[in-house]
Design a protein around this nucleic acid. Structure first.
Lengths: 314, 314
DNA sequence: TTGAAAGCGTTACCAC
DNA sequence: GTGGTAACGCTTTCAA
């Protein structure tokens, strides 16, 4: 491998002069510049990034902790991050977590080891308190409401949109509705918020049979329609945790040539636009873009709330 | 920031002994070990990765060049790569390219600068010859048939499956078929291969009106069904460049309550399984896994061909 | 305008 | 067992 020393030796100038040519143009004679550039060209030399980074104490890399790649909310945030990083010198490193706290610990540890200039948690298993603790080493941004935590965050304010949804559903269908969720409300802030919104509108918590968890993709939606929903005639509306899942539900009724319950999805994906059902847009892509901006900005912590949007269709 | 020197000083031992404790356990007394570990704990010390990497001359990072994130074939390969890297010390860096050769050049340049231990090209704008040239710096793997190029590659052998598809289509529908593609056959190896397979089966190239390009997602499929396919009664079958695109086509006919042409998709995604239409599985996920294995292996170049699979449904 | 030398934080070799 | 020290490849300060 050819190094800056080789260039110095062969050009007859010193390492410092070569370095100067490589970086800023100040204080180096045109003759020196030319001969050095010539040698660089001859030897096909490229400065080693690792050494550069070590010297600067920066990696120009941002790690993005992502639990999985099936939930479109997560992948859309990631896409937003990548998009925002595109026109900067930063690179994006994918850190899959499977909601495994130990794994998240190793990533946080790598932050402390200066492997990244910052970390974005799309979602997390670790406590907000722990994430906050690691901000002493480098910026950490999470993608949810940090409440009282002194942690950078960019997240959607889902509550108003959820309230809108439930007002709409209550007015038309009363309590004859079912909620599809990914995780139990005690493990997931989003699920808890949905329950909270329900309670606020209905004045009572949803009955256990109104909540169905473990919904990850379209197949789950299809299956739950077949196994649960279709067997309960009183169900008139479904609030799903994703447009794809909602699509699965609709698909089942369509195949059975039955009239489906009214459905409201989430994420404003292609499927809800095509099938023309109502949805809630949480602006994941935008969240990703902002998360990148914030993680690379100087004033920490910074928090940004983006309102979710109830998109009524039909 | 606390360094190995701080640990050395405070523990009373030398830097080398601390380093030894940090790495292998050989040749260090239990007393030394204990006191040093104690100090490490007290000062909350973590070795700097950058410095480690520089010392080793390795980054433990693999760059993955990906043109875009809308084509499921690409994202599935990426998922496969991430999955395979998961249980290794390597990290995956996303390098978006938009098929921009200049951008690819900067990534190749970063390879030469030792920013990565290897590069995976999911797809590319640069010539195979250029990629091959950069293997002198570090392993490069592409995800297509490299033909004569001395380049590591893992790719699907699409031809046999394509031949099967066309035999099937010819037998049932003759030439009353249309091909949906993403790019023109002169810009895309895949498109060219489809044309080649067609020619082989039919004994003549497809007519211009049989080829429709620019198909990227479900909306495109829907639109082309509406604007083109539905207006040509003679079309009896469609070979699409993706299951989602195929779904879009079907959606239009479904909405119009018309009988759709027979459709064959590609990628074996969720949509073809749900709608139960035939497809061609190119095993993208597996390709990603193998690409990672190869880029981190010692014997370069290595080439691996995975046969595509015609999945007949109905 | 230029160069010597001291970092940056580790690892690894070689004495003792 | 342990410590000194030269790498690793670059940037930056300080003299000249």
């Amino acid at each position: 491998m050819t190094t800056i020393h080789d260039i110095a030796k062969k050009s007859g100038y010193s390492v410092s002069t070569v370095s100067r040519v490589l970086n800023q143009r100040h204080h180096v004679s045109e003759t020196a510049r030319q001969t050095i550039l010539q040698v660089i060209d001859e030897l096909d030399y490229q400065p080693n990034e690792l050494a550069r980074h070590l010297s600067h104490g920066k990696t120009r890399q941002i790690g993005v902790v992502i639990p999985n790649t099936i939930h479109p909310f997560f992948t859309e945030i990631l896409n937003g991050v990548v998009n925002a990083a595109f026109s900067t010198p930063y690179r994006i490193v994918i850190l899959p977590s499977s909601y495994d706290e130990q794994l998240e610990d190793t990533y946080l540890n790598q932050l402390q080891r200066k492997a990244f200039d910052g970390l974005i948690f799309i979602s997390r298993a670790s406590s907000l308190e722990k994430l906050t603790r690691y901000t002493q080493y480098a910026p950490v941004v999470c993608c949810e409401n940090p409440d009282t935590a002194l942690l950078s965050a960019v997240y959607c304010d889902r509550l108003p949109a959820y309230l809108e949804v439930f007002h709409y559903l209550k007015q038309h269908f009363g309590q004859a509705i079912v909620l599809l969720m990914s995780r139990e409300s005690d493990g997931s802030a989003t699920s808890a918020l949905i329950v909270e919104a329900y309670e606020h509108v209905y004045g009572c918590p949803p009955k256990p049979h109104q909540i169905i968890t473990g919904m990850m993709d379209e197949t789950d939606g299809y299956q739950v329609a077949k196994d649960v929903l279709a067997k309960q005639n009183e169900i008139q509306a479904v609030f799903a945790n994703g447009d794809d899942i909602a699509s699965g539900v609709l698909r089942y009724y369509d195949e059975q040539k039955q009239i489906p319950p009214l459905i409201v999805g989430q994420e404003n994906q292609l499927s809800s636009r095509l099938l023309k059902f109502s949805t809630v847009d949480h602006h994941a892509y935008r969240i990703g873009q902002e998360a990148f901006r914030i993680v690379t900005s100087d004033n920490q912590p910074e928090q940004l709330e983006i309102p979710s949007q109830f998109i009524y269709r039909e």
